[in-house]
Amino acid sequence: MNFKCNNMTTNDENDERRKFLKNIFTVGTGALAVGVGSVIAQETESSEKVATEKIKVLTTEGKVIEVDKPDNKCKTGSCNPAKGIEARKGIPGRSFVMVIDLARCKNARKCIEGCQKGHDLLPDQELMKVYLMKDNPESEPYWFPKNCFHCDNPPCVKVCPVGATFKRTDNVVLVDIDRCIGCKFCVSACPYSARIFNWTDKESYANNDSNYSPETSVPGQHGVVSKCDFCPDRSREGKLPYCASSCPMGAIYFGDKNEDAVTNGEETLRFKQLIKDRVGYRYLEELGTEPNVYYLPATNRMFPYERGLNDLSEEKKELLLNSISKNTH
């Protein structure tokens, strides 16, 4: 954010600036009248366009000028979500990984809602799910957020007959719904039940044109498969995925294994050290899928697990308690 290039120093330009400033003041007062009127009328639509394009700068000489708001510098090579064949290559040099702290999860379900908003999903389509799990009869139940694990040995990618789902160099497994034939083999192959199928048609699916990128997974299509995509479009801009940034407890850490750093938006930790200290594990490790989502055990819980049952319907509460008590499905 360097405004030095806009620094005008000649006298002529000072005069120009004064004139400009006068104009600004007249425009400003006029705008104030309009603004106050619009506040009273409670119209917020038009005001969005007024203030966001320019930003005021106090120069070294003490003059106030207006300059264009700078574009956020893109943190990776390109900030445009890749489309088509390009989407099969990963963001160079990255290797995304997620760590979920089970000691913090209290079933707030904000991760699910954030993901649904970001990916234009119906309320019953959950790319991130939260289960109530109990490891053995003696242990305490805990809440278990589970999205796609983006495995290094993915059973879903192996079985896709047309290569609609693929693994990239940045660890992310994506789905290209332009190629998917909807055979649902990948849905049955995933041992973690991470994939969903779009059973119904939606109005927003009609927007499917060249805007589609496997990195955003929007707009979706009817009759194809969908799953958590680790939000690579947000990673390109240095933003955390929707789930990680929505969690009120900071339970979801996301980062780059190559950089050895994961963050939940507030604290940033070294990934290898974190897994070592907290004895992080991967779910169903023995299946050999090599998942890339690590879990930190639910010890020293912040809240008792019952807190997460509070906002649920009676039906759901009963279902969950049955599920863990019988240890059946």
Binding site: M1, E48, V50, A51, K56, L58, T60
Partner: peptide
């Protein structure tokens, strides 16, 4: 008096002051 700033749709605004001021 320095200047006047208009808030955006979130009620936020900012002023940037150059380093050498």
């Amino acid at each position: 008096e320095l200047t006047s700033l208009f808030t955006d749709s979130n009620g936020e605004t900012k002023l940037i002051i150059e380093a050498n001021y």
